[in-house]
């Protein structure tokens, strides 16, 4: 399948989990892929594996919360692979600093934990988007997809308030930017995963995860590939008239 030949996709948080699957799916579809991750070893390993399959790939380390770090990475990516026309804002953290792998309740949450989640999950998306949109405007095309969450749309008794607030923030970010950037041929969408079997999910107490599975109509956890295929659809020509959407990939859980 070569739906993305000639495209250059930058995926944040792509060292592992959902981001890794999104980046791999774009590579398999023919895109050149920038694996951007906070952890240089993970980014480089992911890119090396893709390169071993004959794909164009570049592993870069950056902290999405730091604009200068992001801007430098984007500049290097464009210089190496060409202008970025697909951006996936996927990097995210969901601290479970409470007892037994549960979220910290709001009344016990440290302001520094709140701030770090805001910085990575929401400001990180602004930073990356800010860095690539001028290039997309010049190209006259672009695809931006952010990883939100069903927790950004309704109460999920697993995540912390910081995570929910940032995932809701990404929805406003998406809808607003779709309006601003549509006239330049840039679509802006989001995916809202439910419980997806990833390292991040496994940081949650397993009883809590099993309780979600029991009320998910499709009776299973999602896979990182389930989310990746939806992202790949949104960045493909098949979704050329789809913008400002937040698509649940949740097996029917919550039907938000």
């Amino acid at each position: 399948m070569s739906t993305h030949t000639g495209r250059v996709a930058l995926v944040t948080g792509s060292g592992r989990g959902i981001g890794r699957a999104i980046a791999d799916a774009h590579g398999a579809a023919g895109a050149a892929v920038v694996y951007l991750d906070h952890d240089p070893a993970l980014a480089e390993a992911a890119a090396a594996e893709a390169a071993a399959k004959g794909r164009k790939a570049l592993g870069l380390a950056a902290d999405v919360a730091d604009y200068a770090s992001v801007a430098a990475a984007c500049e290097k990516a464009a210089a190496t692979l060409g202008p970025i026309d697909v951006l996936i804002n996927n990097a995210g953290i969901s601290p479970k600093s409470g007892s037994d792998g549960k979220r910290a309740p709001m009344w016990e949450m440290s302001p520094s934990e709140w701030q770090r989640v805001l910085d990575v999950n929401l400001t990180g998306a602004f930073n990356c988007t800010r860095a690539v949109v001028p290039g997309m405007r010049e190209l006259g095309r672009g695809r931006i997809v952010s990883t939100s969450s069903v927790a950004g749309k309704t109460f999920c008794d697993i995540v912390g308030v910081h995570y929910a607030a940032t995932k809701a923030g990404l929805i406003g970010f998406t809808k607003h930017l779709a309006g601003e950037l549509g006239p330049f041929g840039i679509t802006v969408n989001a995916v809202a995963p439910g419980r997806i079997d990833t390292p991040l999910m496994r940081g949650t107490a397993s009883a809590a995860n099993d309780a979600v599975k029991a009320i998910t109509p499709l009776r299973r956890f999602g896979t990182a590939e389930d989310v990746a295929e939806t992202c790949l659809f949104l960045t493909s020509d098949a979704a050329s008239f789809v913008t400002a959407q937040v698509i649940d990939v949740a097996g029917g859980w919550l039907m938000t």
Binding site: V227, T230, F233, F241, Q245, V249
Partner: peptide, 14 residues
């Protein structure tokens, strides 16, 4: 779309 059910997708150019 194997993990998508009960959704509604808008296709309206925004």
């Amino acid at each position: 779309a194997g993990f998508m059910t009960g959704t509604s997708l808008h296709v309206n150019g925004g």
